[in-house]
Computed example of a mutant assay.
Amino acid sequence: MDDAALLRSIAAGDREALAALYARHSPWLQVRLRRRCPDDDVVAEALQETFVAAWRGAGRWRGEGDVAAWLWGIGVRRLVDQLARRPRHSPLSDVPDPAVASAEEQVLLGVEHADVAAALNSLSPELHAVVQATVLDGLTTREAARLLHIPQGTVKTRMARARVLLREALS
């Protein structure tokens, strides 16, 4: 069965179709979510919520576009929701514990990511979310606004503010 047929079956209450959709899409979805959040528990929760939303919303899928893109949209929104519930945003770089990491790993991570990651992590959660959505996830202003549940003008304003702060931090 193709993805569209699976969604139609899911809309009719077919749990096996949901299992097939999950088996087909959860591996790549988990990898993409993991790239945006180093916390395995948050990623697992967002992944679970994605497929619960797919189960509940399968009947609303209009058949337009790719099912994988639809799932990704749900998944990244669920991840943002999970991160918004946390008291503090997660650091961008997944730096290993210095006591466990080898000296070579520490040097490579420092050279490769330290300045940019530190600058990004110094942003407020609101600015960080806009940068992540527009720059790292490649969303348009309209898509980022929809994803973050804020007006497009707010996305533009926050991105402008983030640019200023990042320039200051990196200069």
Rank of each mutant, 00 (worst) to 15 (best):
A44W: 00
A20T: 09
G59A: 11
E64H: 11
R8Q: 11
G75V: 03
R167D: 15
L127W: 04
L33E: 02
R62M: 07
Q106N: 03
D3P: 03
A12P: 08
N121H: 11
T154L: 00
F51Q: 07
A68W: 07
V43H: 06
R161D: 12
F51N: 07
S171H: 09
L108Y: 12
L47N: 07
T134L: 00
W72K: 03
P91S: 15
H149V: 13
R62F: 04
R78N: 02
A4Y: 08
A145E: 02
L18R: 08
D137P: 07
K156H: 15
T50W: 02
A11I: 05
R146E: 14
A162E: 11
E45D: 14
V95E: 13
A84G: 13
R32P: 06
H89E: 09
R34W: 10
V31G: 08
R32M: 11
A99G: 11
L120Y: 05
L18D: 10
R35H: 13
R24W: 05
A129Y: 00
V111I: 13
G153I: 01
A133M: 12
L165N: 00
L83F: 04
G75N: 02
V116A: 14
S102M: 13
I150W: 02
V130S: 08
L47D: 10
D39A: 10
G63C: 02
Y22I: 03
V111S: 15
A103I: 06
V31D: 12
V31L: 04
R8E: 09
S26T: 05
V95W: 11
S9D: 12
P151C: 14
L21C: 08
V100Y: 06
Q106A: 15
V155R: 01
P91L: 14
A46M: 09
G138V: 00
A58L: 11
V111G: 06
A68F: 01
L7N: 09
V130A: 05
P151F: 12
E112S: 15
A129R: 01
P87R: 06
Q82P: 06
A12Q: 14
S26W: 02
L109W: 14
L123M: 00
R163S: 07
P87I: 03
A5D: 14
D94M: 05
V31E: 12
R56T: 03
R8F: 01
A4T: 09
P87T: 06
R62K: 14
R167F: 02
L21N: 09
V95G: 11
L109K: 04
